[in-house]
Amino acid sequence: MIRRSRLYIPGNNPKMIQSGKALKPDVILLDLEDSVPIQDKLAARLLVREAIKFLQFKNEVMVRINHFPMGREDLTEIVCEQLDSILYPKTESSQDIEEVAGLLEDLEKARSLSKKIEIVPVIETARGCLRCEEIAFSPRVSAITFGAEDFVADIGGTRTRECLFHLKSTLAVAAAAAGIQALDTVYPFIDDEKGLREEAEESKAMGFCGKGAIHPLQLNVIHEVFSPSEEEVAWAQKVIDAMKEAEEKGRAAAALEGRMIDTPTLKKAHRIMETFKVMT
């Protein structure tokens, strides 16, 4: 599943949800949590449920539910064949995930769904950061992300590179170890294209493979950063070809443009080509 971008759309705004169908994020992320005021929660659940059934999005459909116990009601309403994944906020342990996964299991069975809905935990607290590894290895978790504002508030810092560096690094390493995706948080300044690009590029360099968007205007930059460039694709193809040739000769490593390449390089090359194939 390619997740370069996920566009947050408030779950209580029918016009924006409908517009989302014409837009091109990799993931349509319908939000039932922070962007929906408490008095609108019930209506939003029903709207999101009907929207994902009726609109038949071509993109991956992800819903950010509320933390349990309210999240139980969210899941009970929205679980259906058209739902691909859920974003679970303020995840602090593998127990949190097991609880969500358990309810998903029951609902999927009761509704005879042909799929398993994936979980993307959001790390937003110091406690969650300390347990990144166990969370990343939990069942149904296919990606992991973080919420910057809640995290800095939790640790009493301010939103700076330095304050977030440890969390991002920990999260990227945990994701890599678990073989899942590390997804960057949102960039809150809609009109600051330069800042968005810088933050996305830094995250990509740290191992992240996608980023949240709070406005469709951010999608193009995010896609540019997290899509392989022509040069990267050409390089990846050369690596694959060189390693294939080496394998045929019974070697585990090869030389490409004066540099030794081996299995980790091949793994990276395959990842680039997979993303490229999905994109095209």
Binding site: S19, A22, L23, K24, P216, L217
Partner: peptide, 8 residues
């Protein structure tokens, strides 16, 4: 326009 769909 700032409308995302119109920009599209």
């Amino acid at each position: 326009t700032k409308s995302p769909t119109n920009l599209q």
